[in-house]
Structures are given as structure tokens and as C-alpha cells.
């Protein structure tokens, strides 16, 4: 899968040898794919598969659905890459495809919802937040982590899809307001307002875990 040349991702700008931005690197790879070097698309898959999966998983709360939809996202991107003109960053374009694919899926399957959580990385056991919560609740760490995972996912699923999307992109994916605005085709003000409202809701749902 990763046998292709990675020269595109390591290139330097012809002007003053300035390292290329991620956006420029992606654009070079996209152009290679557009020129018929289909294998170069694997570079983009390797780079973004975890992000795309994470967004979709947190939107659906289902591991299997997320895997399927993430694959669908990459297939759609591959089929449409010829029409990508580089006016926006590749990752915002890809996120948009992923989010729209997921939203269509959620709309179609609004009545059929199964929860299937992802395994939690063991590193979380040493997380300072988990330490604090364990100390506060005087419970066993493993149990607390499991309980908290369920509560967090349930709370996210209670939010509307638009509010959930903004929270996931900002708090979990770490994207800027402007980037989210571009992905969701909303204004920065709308993004901020959705984020504020969503966090207010989440605070109410997760009150018992907050320490102030």
C-alpha cells in the first residue's frame, strides 16, 4: 500500500527552499492523482484515514458504520478528485465529503441506531483528567473510564447533527473556527454560536463529571 514514492510530500517550495505547507503538499499529491498516478491517492488515504474515521465515528457512535462510511468517503473523493481545483485545502474538501456522507446516512437511518464503541487506548489510564476523576469519585480507574466513555458518547448523540459536528471538529479534531466554517459552509459566527450552545448542553448532560 505504501510502496509509492513519497517525493511529493517532501518537496520544498521552489522559492527560497521554504518548506511547503500541508495544503501545498496535498495539492501536489492531488495533481499527481489527477495526472493518472492513481497510487498517489494512497498517500492521502494514509494521511487522513484516522481523522476521517474519528469524525465519522463520533458522529455515528458506531465503529462498523464509521469504517464503512470512511471508506465510502475516500471512494467518493477518488471519483471526484478530477474536479478538485485546489480552491480550498484538500483536507477541508475531504472532511466535507465525509460529513455529508455521514449526514445522509444518519438521515436515512434515523430510526435504526446501534451503538458500537471503539476500544479506548490504554494511555488514557495515565491521563491527568482520569486521575483527577478517580480521586474525586473514589472509583476503580477501569470502571470509570468505561462509564465515562458511555456517558460521553450518549451525550454527543443527544446533540443535533449540526451541533455535534461542530463540537467534534473543534474539541476532538482540534480544527479552528475558520476551518470548521469552511467545511460546514457556515459563517464563523454560526460556528461559534453552535459550539457555545453544544457545550452548554454537554455541560448539563455531564454535570456529575465536571469539577470546578
Amino acid at each position: 500500500m505504501t510502496t509509492i514514492s513519497t517525493t511529493a510530500a517532501q518537496e520544498l517550495s521552489p522559492v527560497e527552499n521554504v518548506p511547503l505547507s500541508e495544503r501545498d503538499k496535498d495539492w501536489i499529491v492531488v495533481q499527481e492523482v489527477q495526472a493518472g498516478k492513481v497510487a498517489a491517492f494512497d498517500l492521502l488515504v494514509q494521511k487522513y484515514r484516522e481523522h476521517i474515521f474519528s469524525v465519522i465515528y463520533n458522529m455515528t457512535g458506531n465503529r462498523a458504520d464509521a469504517s464503512d462510511l470512511a471508506q465510502e468517503t475516500f471512494i467518493k473523493a477518488f471519483q471526484a478528485i478530477e474536479r478538485f481545483q485546489g480552491k480550498s485545502a484538500f483536507f477541508t474538501w475531504l472532511y466535507r465529503i465525509g460529513i455529508n456522507t455521514t449526514m445522509s446516512f444518519l438521515k436515512k437511518n434515523s430510526r435504526r441506531r446501534f451503538i458500537n464503541y471503539e476500544t479506548i487506548n490504554e494511555e488514557v489510564q495515565t491521563n491527568v483528567i482520569i486521575e483527577r476523576l478517580t480521586a474525586k469519585n473514589r472509583t476503580e480507574k477501569g470502571l470509570l473510564v468505561k462509564e465515562l466513555q458511555e456517558k460521553l458518547n450518549e451525550s454527543l448523540q443527544k446533540l443535533s447533527v449540526k451541533h455535534r459536528t461542530v463540537v467534534i471538529l473543534h474539541e476532538i479534531e482540534g480544527l479552528e473556527h475558520a476551518e470548521i466554517a469552511e467545511i460546514t459552509k457556515a459563517s464563523i459566527g454560526t460556528v461559534r454560536s453552535r459550539l457555545h450552545y453544544a457545550k452548554q448542553q454537554l455541560r448539563a448532560y455531564l454535570q456529575e463529571y465536571l469539577v470546578q
Partner: peptide, 30 residues
């Protein structure tokens, strides 16, 4: 001892699939 909503949400980053999952993912995608 403070724990904010942002801290809790950041814990979601720990929910990550393992290596096996990604091998399967790549295979299916191809």
C-alpha cells in the same frame, strides 16, 4: 482539581482503532 467539558471531550481522542483494524480497512478500501 478542575475538570472542564473541554477536558472530557479531549478524552474522546483516546478512542482509536488498533493496527489490525487499519489493515482490514486498507484491504477493504482497495
Amino acid at each position: 482539581d478542575e475538570v472542564s467539558i473541554d477536558d472530557l471531550l479531549r478524552l474522546k481522542r483516546s478512542e482509536k482503532p488498533n493496527r489490525q483494524f487499519w489493515d482490514q480497512f486498507d484491504h477493504e478500501l482497495h
